[in-house]
């Protein structure tokens, strides 16, 4: 464990809590992509199956359980409790365009051709693009609520901090996972445009709106 990984995990946790709080406090999931959230639940489910097969640490187990539970909690709020507020007209990104190629790639490019490893690889690849429906939704509506933009900033920062963690681990532990690093870089690059808008607008007290 190093400081980059720890702050990355905290940013990830913070993002999830921010999203749950936004939905709970405003009693609305308007502006949130249900498709991105469904894919995040799929990401956590397929990645953390090793909860059953391996014990790493109390921290690792606890965080994994929190991430799985919160992702399904978010789906419950979006699709059951506050279903009426779900903005499905703007959530039109086709999930199969991501899930099918990612599934194919995880069979072709992985560290080991075993069920758990393929599912882990699938989750790494899927996570890298799972935010696209959310970003697409913002580009369609042309704006995001401030709390939603804080959520996205925390969520994007998490993988950027993981990149620093991988640099650290490469130099100090000789650890290098090409699949995680490439997917993590792709994931972070997808946020760059959003990061720019967030810093130039939200940090100056304005709402996140897209240039016309």
């Amino acid at each position: 464990m190093n400081v980059f990984r720890l702050t990355g995990d905290i940013a990830h946790l913070l993002a999830i809590i921010l999203l749950l709080m936004k939905i709970w406090k405003t009693r609305s999931c308007a502006g949130v992509s249900g498709k991105s959230q469904m894919m995040f639940a799929l990401v956590f489910t397929t990645r953390y199956l090793d909860l059953i097969t391996n014990f790493i640490s109390l921290y690792n187990t606890t965080m994994k359980m929190i991430f799985i539970a919160s992702s399904y909690g978010t789906l419950y709020l979006m699709f059951l409790k506050f279903r009426a507020t779900y903005d499905s007209n703007h959530d039109t990104f086709r999930m199969e365009f991501l899930v099918v190629p990612v599934a194919g790639l995880s069979f072709l490019v992985n560290h080991d051709f075993s069920p758990l490893e393929i599912l882990w690889t699938f989750s790494i690849y899927l996570e890298s693009v799972a935010i696209l429906p959310q970003l697409f939704m913002i580009s369609k509506t042309g704006e995001a609520e401030t709390i939603t933009s804080h959520y996205l900033f925390a969520l994007g920062s998490y993988r950027a901090l993981y990149i620093l963690n991988w640099v650290y681990r490469f130099y100090f532990e000789g650890f290098f996972d090409l699949i995680a690093v490439v997917a993590g870089c792709v994931q972070t690059v997808l946020y760059c445009d959003f990061f720019y808008l967030y810093i130039t607008k939200v940090w100056k007290g304005k709402k996140l709106t897209l240039p016309a």
Binding site: D50, I56, K64, A180
Partner: peptide, 10 residues
């Protein structure tokens, strides 16, 4: 250089 099959990262 190794990529571990035991995943300690989240």
């Amino acid at each position: 250089l190794r990529a571990s099959l035991i995943k300690d990262e989240l």
